[in-house]
Nucleic acid binder design. Structure first.
Lengths: 127, 127
DNA sequence: TCCATAACTCTCCTTTTGGTAAGTACCGAA
DNA sequence: TTCGGTACTTACCAAAAGGAGAGTTATGGA
């Protein structure tokens, strides 16, 4: 049998903080940007736009800013014309990427099960 | 050195599916409900409301329905009055919980670093 | 007769999210 | 002199998220 819980929290103040961090970090775009920067250690803005399918410039700007603020990546501005900015993960970013790795793997291995569960659920609702 | 990437995707169709699943599952409330049901294997609706601090009834209903549809939990209705419904994770739910465990741990161990990074960032922006 | 109970569901309303498109800054090249 | 390239920022707008609170259901108990 597996372990029941992985974090036996006691202090509700800490609990709230952790929950807050999870809420911030458990975000679609953040995870995808993280993954992109894990596969390609250094990326410029336009490269990220291309890499992260479907993201708009605005969302990407917001996402990388928030990630920079949280210390997940560093944004390096080269003061040249035309502008050149590149992004790479910090150690903190790398550790999060590793931590989240399990979820990517889980998603990959379980796509079919989820698909089937959804179909079952939907057909069950019809009849 | 750690491994660069944890999922060397090739097929962009699969990639899109996985990304979609991540988008669905990498959600604050989903993760917190998952955690609550990991710590307390069986919970009723009102118990979940109490357990998941800050969630509204509406959000909880939506979240557990989506999770049921994805096959992460089972919802058992006992046809009595007053109603009695309880929720417990499926195997799939348990495996996701385990996969996500790493992220909880990461959040717990890195709260201070994140806090500091934020303060640094914010003060840097002021001056 | 009226209330309490559990698990919603529904409506109304505000806030947030996120997209599109245009603008900006700068310089070298055509 | 206008264009192109880069990394944004801003304004505007539509859609979705999400909260508050009342209503619903049926029944056993006071």
């Amino acid at each position: 049998m597996e372990d029941t819980s992985c974090h036996p929290e006691l202090d509700p103040r800490v609990e709230a903080l952790v929950t807050d961090v999870i809420g911030r970090v458990a975000d679609k775009w953040t995870m995808i940007v993280l993954e992109a920067l894990t596969q390609h250690p250094v990326l410029r803005f336009t490269e990220l736009v291309r890499e992260v399918t479907g993201i708009s410039q605005k969302m990407l700007t917001q996402t990388v800013r928030a990630m920079e603020r949280d210390g997940l990546l560093v944004r390096t501005v080269h003061p040249v014309i035309p502008p050149h900015v590149d992004y790479r993960l910090t150690d903190l970013g790398h550790t999060l990427s590793e931590a989240f790795c399990g979820v990517w793997t889980w998603a990959e291995t379980n796509i079919d099960r989820i698909e089937r569960a959804r179909q079952d659920f939907d057909t069950r609702k019809i009849r």
